[in-house]
């Protein structure tokens, strides 16, 4: 997919206007900027969802876009996710590029029929006559002390649906470029925004996307690969820093694209480090960590020093805010996972 991925974002070399300087933006600001540019670039792109118009979104991601592009292109919908996604199907059939927002992860459940039965398979069903360029933004994962159904990790659900692409950015730079890319793709993309990382600022270089396909090595290391995505990437980078104090050089692999998953990137990293720990917020059983453990085992069995370890949420409903620090993998649980792998001896 590298051809499709790099084309809209590779700046022309040489005689274009001077490249803009790198910016410092929160992920909110980076996403807002990306959405504005997607709307500028594509007159068929439309943004809609609950409170995204007049209010600018409960997380301010669409702030100012209705004033800038008008209420025909950026508009509020009723509180009905099945309708938001059902409308996306029809708009995509009619040649538009819908960019719907489902306000919180847990609100995607009422739209599963539209996402799974229609958006995921319309291109296949119509033998390519009806592509579904739908970029579905979903503020995802936990960490902000929100009520029930506002902290879900739905990646396994979406990844299991053929026809959907699933991506989750880890920082403002990735958020900006991955959303610009997703907003220009001909395929349905579930764009999982790590809401716990909305406010942290970081550098964004609009002129230099870097490679956007597959996984990304967020920190190189030689003893063990920590595999994560979304908000867990920042936590794994903290863990890698702490592990270095103990003489363990941890590589952090930001998976980014959860579907299609970058099996080659996983194998490349783990074949060098020979140890792997995967970290996710979602419940453990049949979580994406299980698929990753299987892929790594298939490709790196002969070089692995230990079974792939999983550090995950628990097989319970996502808890209320005062318990979420116990539920989401914390630094010590990830360090324990690393220690278990380091201690493993064959035979």
């Amino acid at each position: 997919m590298s051809e499709t991925l790099s084309s809209p974002l590779s700046p022309a070399a040489g005689d274009g206007p001077a490249a803009p300087a790198p910016l410092t933006l929160s992920m909110q600001g980076a996403l807002n900027r990306a959405l504005g540019e997607v709307l500028e670039d594509n007159p068929k792109a439309l943004i809609f969802g609950e409170d995204v118009g007049r209010l600018g979104g409960v997380f301010r991601i669409t702030d100012g876009l209705q004033a800038r592009f008008g209420a025909e292109r950026v508009f509020d919908t009723p509180l009905a996710e099945s309708g938001i996604l059902g409308m996306s199907v029809g708009l995509a059939m009619a040649g538009f590029h819908p960019i719907p927002e489902v306000q919180f992860d847990g609100f995607a459940y009422p739209a599963v029929n539209q996402i799974v039965s229609q958006i995921g398979r319309m291109n296949y069903r119509s033998r390519g006559a009806l592509p579904m360029p739908v970029t579905l933004r979903v503020p995802s994962f936990g960490g902000i002390r929100a009520p029930e159904l506002h902290g879900e990790s739905l990646e396994s659900l979406f990844v299991h649906v053929p026809g959907l692409k699933v991506v989750s950015p880890a920082d403002p730079h990735q958020a900006y470029h991955l959303l610009r890319l997703a907003g220009s793709m001909p395929d349905p993309v579930i764009f999982m925004e790590p809401k716990a990382r909305y406010w942290q600022k970081g550098p964004v270089d609009p002129a230099d996307a870097g490679a956007l396909e597959g996984a990304r090595i967020a920190r190189p290391g030689r003893h063990l690969t920590l595999i994560a995505w979304g908000a867990m990437v920042a936590r794994c980078l903290q863990v890698a820093e702490l592990a270095a104090e103990d003489g363990i050089e941890v590589e952090v692999l930001d998976l980014r694209w959860l579907s299609p998953i970058d099996a080659d990137g996983l194998a490349e990293s783990v074949s060098r480090t020979r140890r792997a720990v995967v970290v996710h917020e979602a419940p453990r059983s049949s979580g994406l960590g299980a698929e990753i453990a299987a892929l790594v085992t298939e490709r790196c069995f002969n070089t692995l020093k230990a079974p792939v370890e999983r550090v995950t949420g628990f097989d319970v409903p996502y808890p209320s805010g005062d318990l979420e620090d116990e539920y989401i993998p914390n630094i010590d649980r990830i360090l324990f996972g690393i220690q278990r792998v380091l201690e493993h001896r064959r035979g």
Binding site: P147, Q238, A243, Q339, L342
Partner: peptide, 17 residues
């Protein structure tokens, strides 16, 4: 909805050996 997570220095109890 929700609160901004506090950015705090990473704290640990577990040491690797």
């Amino acid at each position: 909805v929700g609160t901004v997570p506090a950015e705090k220095a990473p704290a640990r109890r577990v040491r690797l050996s």
